[in-house]
């Protein structure tokens, strides 16, 4: 299992994007079908609990800010930032009560895998 580091995560985001963007059409952008496959295969736990990721069509339209019917990497990076924000909020909603700063599980729900797993 990979350790949690900023660099490792950046690499995973770029590699995963290319894994699906390469399937068809523009090799450096995700079309609707590729986006849907990526979400279902790579974020199966998150999509269950995320408001943002539930409606793929709506999400796609929101991300495709230049309206070229493809989500390029810049638009994809915005989605990742939004999901990081949402999983952090969930970690606070699910945090055990008590003093100090603590987190519960994020968007994956009650059974939390360790970072990088």
């Amino acid at each position: 299992m990979e350790a949690c580091s900023l660099k490792n995560s950046l690499k995973i985001f770029v590699d995963t994007f290319h894994k699906y963007s390469n399937i068809s059409g523009n090799k450096d952008a995700l079309n609707r079908r590729e986006m849907k496959t990526l979400l279902n295969k790579e974020m199966p736990h998150f999509i269950k609990n995320s408001k943002d990721l539930k409606n793929v069509s709506h999400l796609f339209e929101e991300l495709d800010t230049n309206q070229d019917a493809d989500v390029d990497f810049k638009e994809f990076a915005v989605m990742i930032a939004r999901v990081v924000m949402e999983t952090h909020e969930k970690m606070h909603e699910n945090a055990p009560p008590g003093q100090g700063h603590s987190h519960g599980p994020g968007l994956e729900g009650p059974v939390k895998g360790k970072c990088g797993q």
């Binding site: 995560s9 995973i12 998150f46 990081v84 994020g106 994956e108 939390k112 360790k114 970072c115």
Partner: peptide
């Protein structure tokens, strides 16, 4: 168990 990709997102937090 989260996927590698989901883990990378949690890792950012």
């Amino acid at each position: 168990m989260v996927t590698k990709f989901e883990g990378a997102i949690n890792c950012m937090v």
